[in-house]
Nucleic acid binder design. Structure first.
Lengths: 221, 221
DNA sequence: TCAGAAGTGGAATCTCATTTCAACTTGAGA
DNA sequence: TCTCAAGTTGAAATGAGATTCCACTTCTGA
């Protein structure tokens, strides 16, 4: 379990790769090719693979603190006296981070690259948001019938506008967020409320298959 | 311009391919591989390419009537006495079609595969929707400041939920549509209203580059 | 300073969908 | 019926990113 430190030059390269990859992923999303990262960093592709054999390794290394920051936002928001204010504040701050970093948006909103990082992050955020929603409903700030899953839908909705508008109008999402939040307060919601089970699926997490044996990827050298 | 009719067996194959491709694209989106289409139809891949050298050829052949149907909805909606009712009716019907046909949703909401078909379709729909929005604003059904582009944003927002929820809850989009529409009516919209120029870009149409010479693909045999 | 462990570069290989093509059918019309 | 243009097929070429591999370079610490 104990890892010996990298050789000094290797560590330097690692940092360089991380910086480069973060910049690229922030601008172009999580999908940037290893080739482009390597080229941009001035290393060979092999170096990227040696350091980050799976894309998840790279994404985890890059985004752990970002995800933690979002968790922090949720925690802080959940301590707000006014639940509705906390909720809108949290969403706004979260979207601001996503607006500044396309990769982070992809990470938070889609199941691709879903590593333990995001799964655990969401596992911490979801109940906090749920708490705020419940409090807001109790306080009459949201109509009864609004459930936490509705906020996940809002996440996706606003995210879609953000992604589409990134290049034309990087702040258009604020308009859509306003729309969505006002809608939650004023709409009479039809249909079945999306339950917790639905939340993961909305985020693109594949359905659990309890029957199927889990295949463990062999990590040992 | 006059085309001789296809040989009978070829025409049969063409129809078979169209039926197969439509079914696949309705279920899996516009991206289905030619290989899968061919396999499913029981033909060789070459046959698909002979008939539809570009994916656009296939998409156009398949979706022209669908797009026309949506245009028809917009026309009908724009004749509604009550502008707001017309607007909500149009959106609801449009989303119902998109819900039944994933490919159609992709076509209407994204610039990929954007052929003259979609471009012209949107060129007809947009002013009709714009007219409804303007009327609704005049009638006080929507707050001043709401612009047609906001409805495009709603299209993307609800579409995102539809796509994400397709497999868990195929009707969840109705909830989101309700939220978005209620939001439009009750929100005080911040920021710069998205103008017409933005609309195409929201749909993923690349910016026009007046300076750059347009490359015409040679269609002649 | 030097041996050898660690690290690197980037060509070679793999993968997988897209696209082409030449040998092989088949339908239309004389 | 017979001919051949039209049509079909599926294997092979292409393309582009992902991944591996090994000869070569660079550190580290004895």
């Amino acid at each position: 379990m104990e890892e010996r430190p990298l050789r000094r030059d290797a560590e330097r390269n690692r940092q360089l790769l991380l910086r480069t990859a973060l910049a690229l992923m922030a601008r172009d999303g999580l999908g940037v090719s290893y080739e482009k990262i390597a080229h941009e960093a001035g290393t060979g592709t092999g170096t990227v693979y040696r350091r980050f054999p799976e894309r998840t390794d790279l994404v985890d290394a890059l985004f752990t603190e970002h995800v933690d920051a979002v968790v922090g936002l949720a925690e802080r928001a959940s301590r707000a006296e006014d639940a509705w204010e906390g909720l809108t504040w949290f969403l706004t701050r979260q979207f601001e981070l996503e607006a500044d970093n396309r990769g982070l948006g992809e990470l938070l909103r889609s199941g691709n690259q879903a590593s333990h990082l995001v799964v655990r992050g969401r596992a911490r955020i979801t109940p906090l948001v749920a708490g705020l929603v419940d409090r807001a409903v109790s306080a009459g700030q949201l109509p009864a019938g609004v459930v936490p899953g509705d906020l996940v839908a809002v996440h996706l909705m606003v995210g879609a506008v953000m992604d589409a508008a990134r290049e034309v109008d990087p702040t258009l999402w604020r308009r859509s967020l306003t729309v969505a939040l006002a809608g939650l307060r004023h709409a009479e919601l039809p249909g079945t409320p999306p339950d917790e089970h639905v939340i993961d699926r909305l985020y693109g997490v594949p359905p659990a298959q309890p029957d199927q044996e889990v295949v463990h990827r062999d990590t040992a050298e």
